[in-house]
Design a protein around this nucleic acid. Structure first.
Lengths: 356, 356
DNA sequence: CGGTTTTTGGCAAACGTTTGCTATAAACCA
DNA sequence: TGGTTTATAGCAAACGTTTGCCAAAAACCG
């Protein structure tokens, strides 16, 4: 049967450019040009060649081509750690968006890593220096570097996403974390809230710095002191959002003077926090307003529906790919190395004026 | 500065095997053997070569190697559509698990998305026939096939995951959907439930057939008629789980005689359904028991915590990779072409005996 | 119609590895 | 010590493309 198939579709797998050339009665080079270059070969010849290609089921060998032209069409994405946390689909969404844009541009997406241990670092660098990949999108603040080799001088075009690494000379596509949190905090203040509870990501993390900064800015603008906000967490990574929320609920219980509004820096935190808080008998938003960060669709179906700051992941992915492909196309675009895509606050029932 | 760097780390990017050979004072072939083969070269020579490699920051060119040996070390994963649905982390988890196993085996993971359009089919086939990839893991019931080329006769080792495609001759790693749903339904019957509400995936879909089949088997075993279960949905894909749940809630409202137990075939469906049902004043599990499918971590933080059938994604991923690498290693393993990994029912407070 | 330009096609040399075969050196044995 | 085996290293030919350069043919021009 395999043999039949082969006869039917003519040599399926192993057809070479030479076979096509022979069948079409031309030289190999002509086939090559017919397939790649636009107007370098006679229309009639091209038609013959195309027919031969179809008849043989010929597909050019990507590695041979890549070797010859010294370029691959693979883009790698460097991830900070786990691909998924609780409900937040940020990373998958990013992957999806990037992959879509890349494919449209004729590129392929490869996942470089999952962890950031030395093995992975080495792996990433092998990919980069081995001519395997053509560019990289990085979602981590740490540039791989191990015994002398560093991603930053691999010569590879790199775009950072989610994190602002323009200081490190990387083009960065980010969202306006600080501003968004500032605005929502201001809104809470406007509603009458004066005491806040902030669920933090890991201390020193770019996102946490920005988001907490946003809170402080809003407080200051309203003439409130820094002490108006209680900061909870700060040790665990965003991947452990559920745990952060659970611990924060315990933390909340110990507070003598309860805050009236909660700013969670991920949906996961908010969800587990709310779950625990409700179990403890508090009501949202009557006793406590809650807003979180990420924009997971599931927030619509929490009880109550959760206000959240939606990250424009799709758009950021598109932008990152565009920048990367520009950079690959040599057009050293001198434009700003920081692209900011605005996030969007989704207001739902988890926010209300404080009771008294 | 770039120049400095280069001098410091010696030629970073463009070091060739020839450079290493020259620096170590040996022939190119010796370097090649030193890097790959185990005991083919003298220890002393090998040490000199390794030193040279480090000094030059040499990384072998993957494409040249791939071209020469006629193999790549890239595995592609073919995804059915969207990378993510509501809260279900199935696909990301699969990706994570597969990638981890692959990297350990020295392979890389490339993402190939199988949308319904011809473009992506062609794209996948180009990947397969272009010598780009070494094997594939497919999470779709549709094998790409366009004008004569078909993935099934690409000669590529393929393993199917999540879906049983052993009929199509593919090794398949699946979970015991039918059995799991049968068991949980039986448990609900044991608790006293007699009328069921089933939230369906797309009609004809492998998972839906299996899961619904499981329900029917349990009913039959208990001597209950098929009419004991009301089937809701069946038009939308699992990606639209939230919508399915919402529509099902409407559907539920129209029923004269209310079921007392709900079997949702994804966590998304369950979550949005529960949200709507609760808003309508019903209480879970007092008025209605709910169990769902997928095992998303967030289920623990729903109110009430949701019982769910956890898919053993991690283990399935590992198994799939293992099978694939076995197949690549030529050892035509004649073992069963169907590997079943058992899922796990997580019982939480959303299930109780019916009220009356 | 001869000369000049333009189009088109072919030859062969890359690209950076791996590997079969061969050559040398070392080790062993009688 | 001479002959035989064994370890080690090198030569050169692949792998399947692309592309610079040249030749032939066609088209154009005066």
């Amino acid at each position: 049967m395999n043999k039949n198939k082969k006869l039917a579709a003519d040599e399926q797998s192993s057809a070479l450019m030479a076979d096509v050339a022979r069948l079409a009665g031309v030289a190999i080079s002509t086939v090559s040009r017919a397939l790649a270059n636009p107007g370098r070969v006679n229309e009639k010849t091209r038609a013959r060649i195309n027919a031969a290609v179809r008849q043989l089921g010929y597909t050019p060998n990507a590695m041979a081509r890549g070797l010859r032209v010294g370029k691959s069409n693979i883009i790698m994405i460097i991830l900070p750690g786990s691909l998924y946390y609780g409900v937040s689909q940020i990373i998958p969404q990013v992957l999806q968006s990037i992959n879509k844009s890349l494919i449209q541009g004729g590129y392929n997406l490869m996942i470089a890593n999952l962890d950031r241990d030395e093995i992975s670092e080495r792996h990433i660098l092998d990919l980069a220096f081995g001519g395997n990949v053509r560019g990289a999108i990085i979602l981590s603040s740490k540039l791989p570097e191990v015994d002398g080799r560093s991603l930053s001088n691999s010569g590879l075009p790199i775009v950072s996403m989610l994190l602002d690494m323009s200081d490190a000379g990387l083009q960065s596509v980010i969202t306006n974390d600080r501003e968004a949190v500032r605005d929502v905090t201001a809104e809470l203040i406007r509603l009458g809230h004066r005491r806040f509870f902030y669920l933090a990501g890991p201390e020193g993390n770019y996102h946490d710095v920005e988001r907490y900064g946003g809170v402080l800015e809003a407080l200051e603008a309203a003439g409130l002191s820094k002490e108006s906000v209680h900061r909870s967490g700060g040790r665990l990574d965003y991947q452990h959002g559920f745990d952060i929320g659970v611990q924060a609920a315990d933390d909340f219980a110990t507070l003598a003077e309860k805050p009236t509004a909660v700013i969670a820096t991920s949906d996961d935190m908010a969800i587990s926090f709310v779950s625990r808080i409700q179990r403890a008998g508090l009501s949202i938003p009557d006793d406590l307003s809650v807003v979180s960060f990420d924009g997971s669709p599931v927030c619509e179906f929490s009880s109550p529906p959760l206000s959240t700051i939606e990250q424009p992941v799709e758009e950021m992915g598109r932008a990152a790919v565009e920048l990367l492909l520009d950079a690959i196309g040599q057009r050293q675009n001198p434009a700003s190395v920081r692209t900011v895509v605005r996030s969007k606050l989704i207001l739902r029932e988890s926010i209300a004026p404080p009771k008294n």
